[in-house]
Design a protein around this nucleic acid. Sequence first.
DNA 1: ATTTGACTATTTTGGAATAAAAGTCAAAAG
DNA 2: CTTTTGACTTTTATTCCAAAATAGTCAAAT
Lengths: 208, 208
Amino acid sequence: MVEKDSDRSQVKLEQILTAAQKRFGHYGLSKTAMIDIANDIGMSKASLYYYFKDKETIFTAVMEREQVLFVHEMRKIIDAPVKAEQKLTEYVNLRIALLQKMLTLGKFSFGSLMEIKPQIHCLLQDFNKEEKKMIGDILDYGVKNKEFSAETTHKHAEFFIDTLLSIRKKILSEHSDEDTIEFSPHKYQKLKEQTNMFASIFIKGITA
Amino acid sequence: MVEKDSDRSQVKLEQILTAAQKRFGHYGLSKTAMIDIANDIGMSKASLYYYFKDKETIFTAVMEREQVLFVHEMRKIIDAPVKAEQKLTEYVNLRIALLQKMLTLGKFSFGSLMEIKPQIHCLLQDFNKEEKKMIGDILDYGVKNKEFSAETTHKHAEFFIDTLLSIRKKILSEHSDEDTIEFSPHKYQKLKEQTNMFASIFIKGITA
DNA sequence: ATTTGACTATTTTGGAATAAAAGTCAAAAG
DNA sequence: CTTTTGACTTTTATTCCAAAATAGTCAAAT
């Protein structure tokens, strides 16, 4: 594994992640072989292990990239001078887009993959916390603005994130014969409807 | 299969269902053999097929019993002269109790069983519709009483039921290593908290 | 510091043999 | 005619195993 962060190393790292992301996007985690990624960038398989501990770590790194990007987008929304209500709505829409990326990326079933691989599970859990923090910030901002009633914003943020996750999981797991999930336009539509409805009722429910 | 509904037949039917319910409750659907049920009531396995088409039908019948009981309880609540808000709250609590019965009964994973067995899937779908109708009635009642804002109660009822289902499924599927689900006190508590919070925010969200 | 071929270790796959349970039916019992 | 059953066939689940594929290691080379 690489220790020193030379420019040369950084380039290689990016190269690997980009190739891996393409493979994972097409074939999913399990059906992508390390040798495939290596061949794509004209490298030997063994070299990959110089840069990354194992396959799971590469996958995790790819996911993390997307998450970081998402958090950046969200921070922009959080810092924007608009009503808290609008921030929540934008979050919901942006979150669906992220889901879409994650799914086409991994072709994983929420149910199986997450529980088994500890590293990925851990990453998602951290991200979940980050999300709750962001929503908590939005709610606090809404309370400060007399937009929302001043209740336990922490609990509300947790509830908001958890429920949205529940909705996503349920809709995605419908009709899943195999362990791969296809994010059909129908599911996309349904998910959008239900999450938007949830957001709108949630907002009304906590409005001062 | 039995055609004529003699008293004698009815007694046998009940006997089978009761024995089956015990077995399913202890060992779940897949780990309960027809021969076990037959032995429990001193009958030959072949006789069971005189009364029921197949194993799945027995299981379905057992589940249906519980559902019918639940609907009766709910109708009592719906007809009671209390605020719609209270009716919704009572529904949520009663619904958790039903879930508990269903789970100890079948030890099934929502994810696997339901999709595969068409008959059970169908029963649950019908029950789902029945639930939406009941909640729709409560919402209509609430609108009539000026308790709730007069919006599309039908859509709201659907959303309410679907979201509660999502929440149940997600919490139940947490940490499920095998395909059996244990309804631990911890999960029970969590489920209660989240569904109650959802109900309370939902009610505020649609209150006039 | 980086790369790799040759290596080992682990996982997955497929298939055949086996066991277990589902489901059928003709004949018997009441 | 209704109900029951032992003996039967069919289907499904389990086990075992060998072969193939893939993950991951390491000493030597660049």
